[in-house]
Amino acid sequence: MAITWDDGDRPFSEAFQDHYFSKADGRAECGHVFIDANRLGERWQAGGPFRIGELGFGTGLNFCETFRRWKTLRPPDGHLSFTAFELFPLGKADIDRILSHWPEIAAERAALTAHWPERAEGVITIDADPQTRLTVICADALKALTALPDRYDAWYLDGFAPSRNPDMWSQDLMRAVFDHTAPGGTFGTYAAAGFVRRNLQAAGFTVERRPGFAGKREMLAGSRPAGR
């Protein structure tokens, strides 16, 4: 994936003509849009295994910030499985450069980049610590997800902007996400486009609008009903 740099360290995708994260603060954006919207802090307290699925691994920022929060909140018997789908993985040097912007996640960045291959392809599995496993599937999200039997407790829907990358928000992919969500499972996304909301609702999710991050008017969050 060809990227250029704004303000020295903010990556911009040439292919999708979009930035990878908010100019305000990508790490704080992750907390608001994904961690808080999915109520992860309170849900992790239950212990046992917890599975997060992500559409669009990008820079790895969401994983690193989630890993940081997870380490402060997890019970002794907790285990986090974080699975991301990324068709255009970034190189190790770019990921390291991007994530070095946040000293708060220095340890998590080191855990990620220490095991990130020079040429990212296929399925990348990283045991970040004994309670945390990252899996990045470098493939088309719809094809890869459809082939998996797994169900996830929470989803981060984080593809590039719907207007720039509509395939990542299609009705078929949203249906696949629903089918691979545990009953009562949740999602969060910065996106608020009408067709995204309608595709999520058509798939079977309950969807609500919430205040967006850093002055953005709206974002979407929701869940798969427990009885479905």
Rank of each mutant, 00 (worst) to 15 (best):
G122A: 00
L134V: 00
E108W: 03
R74F: 11
E104M: 12
V136Y: 01
W116F: 08
Q131S: 15
L90F: 07
I95C: 03
N62R: 04
L112A: 02
W102F: 06
P89K: 06
I95P: 04
L142T: 01
I105A: 06
L61M: 13
Q131K: 10
P103G: 15
A154N: 07
T132I: 11
D96E: 15
D140I: 02
T125W: 13
D150M: 15
I105D: 09
C138M: 05
A161Q: 07
N62E: 10
L148D: 06
H101L: 13
W70S: 01
R97N: 10
W102K: 04
L61N: 09
L90M: 06
D129P: 11
D94F: 01
P117G: 00
G91A: 08
W155I: 07
H115C: 09
R109Q: 08
H101K: 15
I98L: 02
V136F: 05
G122S: 07
P75C: 13
Y156C: 04
P130A: 01
V123I: 09
K71I: 03
P130C: 08
V123M: 11
R133G: 01
R151W: 11
A93M: 13
A106T: 12
D94M: 00
F88S: 05
A111V: 09
R74I: 09
K143D: 01
R69L: 14
D140R: 14
T125E: 14
D140V: 05
D140K: 13
E86T: 02
I105Q: 04
A161S: 14
